[in-house]
Design a protein around this nucleic acid. Structure first.
Length: 646
RNA sequence: GCCAGCGUAGCUCAGUGGUAGAGCAGCUGUCUUGUAAACAGCAGGUCGUCGGUUCGAAUCCGGCCGCUGGCUCCA
């Protein structure tokens, strides 16, 4: 009798199988349907081929398209088929890396002198489907380091050689499907026939190993599916997402503009956008007032000496506008507010009794971002931070961090925005960071302790810290799934040293305060871009640039309409009357497309009874209300910052 | 900055070498309206920009500017 191993399934059940059984056989033992769907297995956290013999007991998950691991396998294999297609169409092509990603996969390819353009992708797609139909199996083959190197030396592929040189002999495997062999750890789907639909989504330059000094390869992005229908769904979904794009809605709703004569990456807030921004600021200002912040205003330029002292210059020199020469001095367009605030701190002598001192400012800063990096309101060269610096004693630090987390969570909670939280710590690259190691270790420890106490659901990002300290970052996705850092809370032991900040303790000695840098919105521009996409332009009433549109059904009711409007204006409601000589349907349509939350339709019935007929944006007619009742409902909705219905 | 794509009226877009178009918005007039588009007329463009090819360029080629997606970067 062959040796038995014990396999544990995700539901906790255990079963005995002969040693050396494969994932496929286990799947078949459950059902043939599952075996048909199976793409790979996850064995004790390692994803492996269905055909791999299992030699030891362990936990197994059979991966299908419905799981992350299954998709990962599927797209990983798809990258190989893409490469095979490219190899057939462009025999000179040399391959770099081709991993699966969140939505699909890519392959970095050196096409030599030939340029590949968008139009060529159709042909590659056709070839991929043709190769998929061959149902070629993915064959795993362990090779020695020498064999691997010889294979690629023969093919003159410096990229794979570069990769192999970092690998250990004995751990190297090749995978072959059809006529294409690739250096690969695996795993792969059983055969190419599982791929039924493909879309090559974009083409981009990508530096080899992410190094600007290295050669730029051509990156082809794609996505594949096991069913044609899933591709159509995906394409539809992408189109829907594009409708939420803040660049599109920002233009349609006249929220902001970017004008090349004003300057690249310098967004201008239009009247409608300005209303939203001022509401956001008022919201935060009020919360900060409750929490003991004191507001300050600092100038837009500062003496270069200020930034030399902070260390930002020349550390970030590449991404700052050039200094302005004034008489014998040089000034920098303010790239951040912190140094100004530190000087405000230094302006007076502080007792431990004064701390924490919380200085807040909606401070506009200018950074010279690379032109290729600019994007709508998300990535700009001039933006306003909802900045604050908290100067506290070390004893107060953890409590202050906690208070910052609470405030940030209140902000995102108010908009019901899903956030990812990242503790951004430093990595081993010492040159990137300032200050003493023991301070760093302490600050990271403290941040982690508070994050755990607050039961934050976080990930840790090594190498994501700023140069002066670790931070907690609040990260949000835009309409097309890109991640953007918005809120941030940063602990800083470095600037107090650099600016020689002190307070007098109860022992009558001078001590260093600790600084927390924090910005719940992060940047007003970036936050607005996410806000627009999050609500698809259908803002909560408290933020809507125009909250109410009064629609008289004919000129005869203009007087009543204006009477209603002026009573709303008394309550600070943003309201207009549509007196155009349009039909009611037309006025309603225009109000709907302008995404005005409330429409009040008034005619003889309403005028005679002192009521309004209320139509809610996207919901339609919600009935007739006594006008006073409508006002109190509306003001309550505004004051409670209620979210729109969906 | 690099790679790819794009740039025609205020907006959305059609127009692949032979007299610049449509819808919406705008203006003028008519209509006075009951829950997502009243009707008619008018006006609006050095086709991003500069250069080249051509008898002739929105259209083909090149430089530049800007935008979009990606790479790199992000205090």
């Amino acid at each position: 009798m062959p040796e038995q191993i014990t396999i544990t399934f995700p539901d906790g059940t255990e079963k005995k199988f002969p040693k050396g059984i494969t994932g496929r056989e286990i799947a078949e033992s459950i059902s043939m349907g599952l075996a048909r769907e199976a793409l790979s297995i996850t064995l004790d956290d390692e994803i492996v081929d269905l055909s791999r013999p299992i030699e030891e007991s362990g936990a197994i998950t059979i991966n299908t398209w419905d799981s992350e691991d299954g998709k990962y396998t599927f797209w990983h294999s798809s990258a190989h088929v893409l490469a095979e297609a490219v190899q057939e169409l462009y025999p000179q092509a040399k391959f770099g890396i081709g991993p699966p990603i969140e939505n699909g996969f890519y392959y970095d390819i050196d096409f030599g002198d030939q340029t590949v353009s968008q139009d060529d992708l159709d042909e590659i797609e056709d070839k991929i489907i043709e190769l998929a139909r061959n149902k070629n199996e993915f064959e795993r083959k362990p090779v020695s380091k020498k064999e691997a190197l010889d294979f690629y030396k023969k093919r003159d592929n410096e990229y794979k050689i570069d990769l192999i040189e970092d690998l250990e002999d004995g751990t190297i495997t090749f995978y072959r499907q059809g006529g294409f062999t690739d250096l690969c750890r695996g795993p792969h789907i059983p055969h190419t026939g599982r791929i039924k639909a493909v879309k090559l989504t974009s083409l981009a330059g990508a530096y080899w190993r992410g190094d600007v000094e290295s050669k730029q390869l051509t990156r082809i992005y794609g996505i594949t599916f096991p069913k044609q229908k899933l591709l159509s769904q995906y394409i539809k979904q992408v189109e829907e997402a594009k409708k939420r794009d803040h660049k599109k809605l920002g233009k349609e709703l006249e929220l902001y503009m970017i004008d090349s004569m004003i300057g690249q990456g310098l967004p201008v807030w239009l009247p409608n956008g300005t209303i939203i921004r001022r509401e956001l600021e008022a919201f935060l200002r009020e919360e900060q007032k409750k929490r003991g912040y004191r507001e300050v205003i600092t100038p837009h330029i500062g003496n270069l000496e200020l930034y030399r002292t902070s260390g930002h210059y020349p550390y970030y020199r590449e991404s700052q506008y050039n200094p302005i020469q004034v008489e014998d001095e040089e000034y920098l367009l303010k790239p951040m507010n912190c140094p100004h605030h530190h000087r405000i701190y230094s302006n007076t002598l502080h007792s431990y009794r004064d701390l924490p001192l919380r200085l807040a400012e909606f401070g506009t800063v200018y950074r010279f971002e690379q032109s290729g990096e600019l994007s709508g309101m998300s990535r700009v060269r001039g933006f306003t931070q909802d900045d604050a610096h908290i100067y506290c004693t070390h004893d107060q630090l953890k409590d202050e961090i906690k208070r910052c987390i609470d405030l940030t969570e209140l902000v995102f909670g108010t908009f019901d925005m899903p956030v990812d939280i990242r503790l951004s710590f430093r990595d081993d690259n010492e040159e990137k960071y300032g200050g003493k190691t023991e301070f760093w270790d302490r600050a990271e420890q403290e941040i982690k302790e508070v994050a755990d106490q607050e039961q934050l659901d976080y990930t840790i990002g090594r190498g994501e810290a700023s140069f002066y300290g670790p931070k907690i970052d609040f990260i949000i996705r835009d309409a097309i799934g890109r991640k953007w850092q918005l809120g941030t809370i940063q602990v800083d032991y470095v600037m107090p040293e650099r600016f020689d900040l002190t307070y007098v303790g109860s022992d009558n000695d001078r001590h260093r305060p600790v600084i927390i840098h924090r910005a719940p919105f992060g940047s007003m521009e970036r936050f607005a871009s996410i806000l627009i996409e999050h609500f698809a332009g259908d803002f909560p009433v408290w933020l809507a640039p125009r909250q109410v549109q009064v629609i008289p059904i004919s000129d005869d009711f203009n007087d009543y309409a204006f009477k209603c409007a002026s009573r709303l204006k008394e309550k600070d409601v943003r309201v207009e009357v549509d007196t155009r000589s349009e039909q009611v349907g037309g006025k309603i349509r225009d109000a709907e497309t302008s995404k005005i939350p409330y429409m009040l339709i008034v005619g003889s019935e309403e005028e005679s009874s002192g009521t309004v007929s209320v139509r809610r944006h996207k919901k339609g007619d919600i009935g007739t209300f006594d006008f006073s009742e409508f006002i109190s409902n509306l003001t309550a909705e505004i004051n409670n910052k209620e979210l729109p219905p969906h």
